[in-house]
Amino acid sequence: MSILVNKDTKVIVQGFTGKEGSFHAEQCMAYGTKIVGGVTPNKGGQEHLGQPVFNTVKEAVETTGATVSMIFVPPAFVADAVMEAADAGIDLAVIITEGAPVRDMQAAKAYATKHNMKTIGPNCPGIITAEECKIGIMPGMIFKKGNVGLISKSGTLTYEGANQVVKEGFGISTAVGIGGDPIIGLSYKQLLPMFEADPETHCIVMIGEIGGDLEIQAAAYIKEHITKPVVAFIAGQTAPKGKRMGHAGAIISGSAGTAAEKMAALEAAGVTVVVSPAEIGKAVTKAMAK
């Protein structure tokens, strides 16, 4: 078990033949991901990395039976690509591209939701079920199989967290990088119940950051519904107000979205909140011993 994706998941790549798309599709295949084809308009009928290329997502889905799409198209085309995937009946779109306009994502997500398509990202490392399926750009070698589920807005903190968990002698069930844009797909609140229901996951690590209130929503959900131990870190305790900290959504507007309020809400929900990401591994060890 795991959540959302596993060794049998059939994946297509939108933006398959581009530089980024090619490089990462190849890495994913090497990890074991079942990439069954890709989409690049006007390259339909060709073969790329030993897999068929299609002009449209619809054709790709009809021919290959893919249920997940990994999106690498340039920022201005992300919304179009996401909506095409939703229209073609894809179940989950993993959007890696950074820099998609917010207005585009608003429309694309609303359309995806209407078509029951889940999305992850944009501007994220993707999703990985350890030693089975990697859909994204994370370094696969650090994700050893185990019983810790991980949800993170930040790419490198996902790696940092996973690495510490593995060094402590545990491993990862599934890790999801949800991205730090103002509008994102699946968030803590949707992923927490999946991990709660997954028998392979015994403990959940959630990594958040300043900006927005997704972590506050997560805290309320955890308090009511999550029985598994949760370890959390919120990045940006030392971030100044009103400054965008790298991620488009990582900004304290006025007095809202601070690390302090998120940490307090999570603590009140019974979550083990660590002050430094260097403490994640040790906190997981404690949580797993319970």
Binding site: S154, L157, A235, T238, G246, A250, A259, S276, P277
Partner: peptide, 11 residues
């Protein structure tokens, strides 16, 4: 990475 950069400042 932005998250790790903030996490480093925090640490």
């Amino acid at each position: 990475g932005a998250g790790l950069a903030m996490g480093t400042m925090d640490t």
